[in-house]
Lab assay of single mutants.
Amino acid sequence: KNAAKIVNEALNQGITLFVSDNKLKYKTNRDSIPSELLEEWKQHKQELIDFLTQLES
C-alpha cells in the first residue's frame, strides 16, 4: 500500500493524519483506532511523514 491510499482509508474512517514536529499524528472523533490501522501506520511511518509533509508544503 502506498501513503496516499493509507491516508485516504484513514479519512474514510473519520481519521485525519498529519505531521507535527516531524512526528505522525492523528485527529479523530472516534473512541478508538483499530489496531490494524495503527500497525499499518507504524509500518509505513516514514513514507506517511514524507507524503504528508510534501502535501503541506
Rank of each mutant, 00 (worst) to 15 (best):
K1E: 08
K1N: 10
K1T: 10
K1Y: 12
K1I: 09
K1Q: 09
N2Y: 10
N2V: 12
N2F: 09
N2P: 12
N2R: 12
A3F: 04
A3D: 01
A3K: 01
A3M: 11
A4R: 09
A4N: 06
A4C: 13
A4V: 06
A4P: 06
A4F: 10
A4W: 14
A4L: 09
A4G: 07
A4T: 05
A4D: 06
K5M: 15
I6Q: 02
I6A: 02
I6G: 00
I6E: 01
V7H: 04
V7E: 01
N8V: 10
N8I: 13
N8L: 15
N8K: 15
E9Q: 07
E9H: 07
E9Y: 07
E9V: 05
A10N: 02
A10D: 00
A10Y: 02
A10W: 02
A10I: 01
L11S: 07
L11F: 10
L11Y: 10
L11P: 00
L11Q: 08
N12D: 11
N12I: 14
N12M: 15
N12C: 13
Q13W: 15
Q13K: 09
Q13P: 00
Q13A: 13
Q13S: 07
G14T: 02
G14K: 04
G14N: 05
G14C: 07
I15V: 07
I15T: 02
I15G: 01
I15R: 01
I15D: 01
I15H: 03
T16C: 14
T16M: 12
L17D: 01
L17P: 01
L17T: 00
L17K: 01
L17C: 02
L17H: 01
L17N: 01
L17W: 02
F18L: 06
F18A: 03
V19S: 04
V19W: 04
V19F: 05
V19D: 00
V19I: 07
S20R: 09
S20T: 11
S20E: 15
S20W: 10
D21P: 01
D21Q: 09
D21K: 07
D21H: 09
D21Y: 06
D21N: 11
D21T: 04
D21C: 12
N22R: 07
N22S: 08
N22E: 06
N22P: 01
N22T: 06
N22C: 13
K23C: 12
K23D: 15
K23H: 08
K23E: 15
K23M: 14
L24V: 05
L24A: 00
L24Q: 00
L24E: 00
L24G: 00
L24M: 03
K25R: 13
K25S: 09
K25M: 15
K25W: 15
Y26C: 05
Y26F: 11
Y26E: 00
Y26K: 01
Y26G: 02
Y26Q: 02
Y26P: 01
K27A: 09
K27T: 10
T28A: 06
T28R: 03
T28P: 07
T28K: 03
T28C: 06
T28E: 02
T28N: 04
T28V: 04
T28Y: 04
N29R: 08
N29Q: 11
N29C: 14
N29T: 13
N29S: 13
N29F: 11
R30M: 10
D31Y: 05
D31T: 12
D31R: 08
D31Q: 11
D31A: 12
D31E: 13
S32A: 09
S32K: 10
S32V: 09
S32M: 09
S32H: 13
S32D: 09
S32G: 07
I33A: 03
I33Q: 02
I33T: 03
I33M: 04
I33F: 07
I33E: 02
I33C: 03
P34G: 04
P34N: 05
P34S: 06
S35W: 12
S35V: 14
S35H: 13
S35N: 13
S35R: 12
S35C: 13
E36D: 10
E36P: 06
E36F: 09
E36Q: 11
E36I: 09
E36K: 09
E36H: 12
L37Q: 04
L37R: 03
L37V: 05
L37E: 02
L37F: 07
L38Q: 06
L38D: 03
L38G: 03
L38P: 03
L38A: 05
L38S: 04
L38W: 08
E39Y: 08
E40Q: 13
E40M: 14
E40V: 15
E40L: 15
E40N: 07
W41H: 02
W41N: 00
W41M: 06
W41I: 08
W41Y: 04
K42A: 14
K42P: 01
Q43L: 14
Q43S: 10
H44L: 05
H44Q: 05
H44R: 06
H44A: 06
H44S: 05
K45V: 15
K45R: 14
K45N: 13
K45Y: 15
K45I: 15
Q46V: 08
Q46P: 05
Q46C: 08
Q46E: 10
E47F: 05
E47T: 06
E47D: 08
E47A: 12
E47H: 05
L48Q: 00
L48S: 00
L48K: 00
I49G: 01
I49K: 03
I49V: 07
I49N: 01
I49D: 01
D50Y: 12
D50I: 11
D50W: 13
D50V: 11
D50N: 10
D50F: 11
F51P: 00
F51Q: 02
F51D: 00
F51W: 09
F51I: 03
L52C: 02
L52N: 00
L52H: 00
L52D: 00
L52K: 00
L52R: 00
T53S: 11
T53D: 05
T53Q: 10
Q54I: 08
Q54S: 14
Q54Y: 10
L55K: 10
L55R: 13
L55H: 11
L55D: 08
E56M: 14
E56H: 13
E56D: 12
E56L: 12
E56C: 11
S57P: 14
S57F: 08
S57M: 12
S57I: 14
